Every structure is written in C-alpha cells, then in structure tokens.
Simulated scan of single mutants.
Amino acid sequence: MGLFDRLRGKRKPGTLRGATKQDTSHLDEWASSRTGVEAYVEPRTNVTDTTVVLVAHDGEWTRRRISDFDAAMDFGRKRSIPVYEVARVGYPKRMRDYMARQKREGRA
C-alpha cells in the first residue's frame, strides 16, 4: 500500500459505489414528504450503478443509487409507488417541465 492509497479510500479506480442506507433513507424521506410520487429505474451503466429517480406530482425529482431493479420494485411496493423502467417509458413530461421552470427562474 502506497503512502497516498489510504487518503484515496479503499475503492479501486473504476469501481462503482453501490447503494447505501443513506441513499435509501433519502428516498424514503423524500417520497413521504411529497404527493403523487412515481419511481423511474435507470439501468446500470459503465459509469453509474442502478439508480432510481423519484418524481413528485409537480415534477420535482431526486435521484439515488439502488442495488438493482428488484430492490426498486420492493421500494415501490412497500410505499405504494408505481415503478417504471426509464428505458421503456422515458421520463415524465412534468419532470422536464419542472427543470425548464427551474432554469427560467435561475435555480438550475
């Protein structure tokens, strides 16, 4: 182990960080504080692990890692949130509208 290896952390370059309890608690808190929440699962890529995007009724959204599609389905089932695959259905229009409003208002 080199001198700077300890400072860099234990992960090797190119390895993905998996979902943590903090990710799940953020999703829990976010979903419980908003109405009309739906979940959109993004598949794993070379750069990121599987993620889930929660979108509220007004288009506000958040994204966090989740271990896999089945975990996203369990998350949605436990909270009565519909779960969709982004690759099949795309993102909802209200999410795009929300981002456009944020950009116009100078918040993004």
Rank of each mutant, 00 (worst) to 15 (best):
G18V: 01
V37Y: 03
L7P: 07
K103Y: 07
H57I: 13
H26C: 12
D70I: 01
K103L: 11
S33E: 12
E38Q: 10
Q102F: 03
D49W: 06
W30A: 06
R101T: 00
G36K: 11
E29A: 11
R65S: 14
D49H: 04
V53W: 00
V37A: 04
D5H: 08
Y84Q: 07
R96G: 12
A100D: 08
V55A: 08
N46P: 03
R8C: 02
P43R: 12
G9V: 05
T51Q: 09
M73H: 02
I81F: 02
R65Q: 11
S25R: 13
S33C: 09
T20Q: 09
D23I: 08
S67I: 05
M99G: 09
G2E: 14
P13N: 04
V53R: 01
D5V: 09
K78N: 10
R34E: 06
Y98V: 00
H26I: 15
M99Q: 15
T51G: 06
R8Y: 03
V53G: 02
R64T: 15
S25G: 03
R88Q: 13
R101K: 14
T45A: 13
A31D: 08
K12Q: 08
R6C: 13
S25L: 14
T20N: 09
K93Q: 07
L3S: 12
K78W: 02
D74Q: 04
S33Q: 14
T50Y: 01
A71T: 00
P43Q: 09
A56I: 01
R94A: 07
R44L: 06
S25K: 10
F69R: 07
G36L: 11
G18I: 03
E38V: 00
R17T: 11
D28V: 12
Q22P: 14
R77P: 05
R88L: 13
R6A: 13
L54R: 08
R64K: 13
Q102E: 15
E60Q: 11
T24S: 09
S32E: 04
R96M: 15
R104H: 11
V52R: 05
R63W: 07
